[in-house]
C-alpha cells in the first residue's frame, strides 16, 4: 500500500468521512474512493466504482464476484449518544469506545458533564431535545438515557424516537418506565413508537453495579445492531415465570 493512499485513508477516518479502499489482489494496485474523489494507481471502471459505492451503502466489505478486486469499506464509526453524565456513564462510555462507538455525552448539569469525569469525550451541555436535534441520530446511532429525570430523559427520548436510531434505551425500573410511557402517551406518542424504547435498559444478566449495568446495555445494543433475537428484561422475566 502506498503511503500517500494510507495517509489519505487515515485523513478520511479522522474527518469521519466514508471511504472504500479497492485492491487488485493479483498485483496490489489500489484505489481509494472517498466522497467524489478517487485516488491511487488502480483505474476503476464505472461499474467497479458503482460497486464500491454500493458496498459503502451496504456497509459490507468483500471480493467483487468474478474479479480480482477486493472492496474494503471504511464507514464512519457508529455513534452513541448518552444522556446523563452519571456514574453508569463513566463505565458505559469507555466500554462503548472499545466497541468502536464515537460517544457523545449530553447533560446540561455542569456538575456532571466535566472533562475530569469524561476525559477526551465530546460533552454537550445543552438541553437534551436541542442537543438531539443538532446531533441528528441516524440508523448508525444509538441513544441511551441515564438521568432518571423526566425533565431530561423525556425530551431526549421524544426527539430520538423521530429518528431511525437502531437502539433507543432508557434506564429506570419497570415502574419508572410505566410512568414514563404514560407521560409520553399523554404527549401524543403512539404505541408502535413507544415500543421502540428498550426499558429497563439492558439485557437480564442480573447486573447490580454501574459497570455491570453498562455491560448489559452494551450487550443489548450489540444485539440490536447485529439483528440478534430481541431479549429484553421484560421478556426474560415473563419467560422465567
Amino acid at each position: 500500500m502506498r503511503r500517500e493512499l494510507l495517509d489519505a485513508l487515515l485523513q478520511a477516518r479522522t474527518a469521519k468521512k466514508a471511504a472504500v479502499l479497492v485492491t487488485h489482489l493479483a498485483d496490489g494496485r489500489q484505489a481509494l474512493v472517498a466522497g467524489d474523489a478517487v485516488s491511487g494507481d488502480l483505474p476503476l471502471a464505472p461499474a467497479d466504482l458503482a460497486a464500491a459505492r454500493q458496498a459503502l451503502r451496504d456497509d459490507r466489505s468483500g471480493r467483487l464476484s468474478e474479479s480480482e478486486l477486493f472492496l474494503q469499506v471504511f464507514n464512519p464509526p457508529l455513534r452513541l449518544l448518552v444522556v446523563g453524565a452519571v456514574h453508569i456513564a463513566q463505565a458505559l462510555v469507555p466500554m462503548a469506545q472499545i466497541l468502536g462507538y464515537d460517544v457523545t455525552i449530553v447533560d446540561p448539569r455542569p456538575a456532571f458533564a466535566t472533562e475530569q469525569r469524561f476525559p477526551g469525550t465530546t460533552l454537550v451541555d445543552e438541553w437534551p431535545d436541542d442537543a438531539m436535534a443538532q446531533l441528528a441520530p441516524d440508523r448508525r446511532t444509538a441513544v441511551v438515557t441515564l438521568t432518571h429525570d423526566p425533565k431530561l430523559d423525556d425530551p431526549a427520548l421524544t426527539e430520538a424516537l423521530k429518528s431511525d436510531s437502531f437502539y433507543i434505551a432508557a434506564l429506570g425500573s419497570t415502574r419508572t418506565h410505566a410512568k414514563r410511557l404514560e407521560r409520553l402517551r399523554a404527549a401524543g406518542l403512539g404505541e408502535d413508537t413507544l415500543a421502540r424504547i428498550h426499558a429497563p435498559a439492558g439485557l437480564a444478566i442480573g447486573a447490580k453495579s454501574p459497570a455491570e449495568i453498562a455491560l448489559s446495555v452494551c450487550a443489548q445494543m450489540t444485539a440490536a445492531l447485529r439483528g440478534a433475537p430481541p431479549l429484553v428484561k421484560a421478556e426474560a422475566q415473563q419467560a422465567a415465570q
Partner: peptide, 9 residues
C-alpha cells in the same frame, strides 16, 4: 481498526 492502520503508518 484505525489503530492498526495508524500503527503501520
Amino acid at each position: 481498526t484505525d489503530a492498526v492502520l495508524r500503527q503501520a503508518a
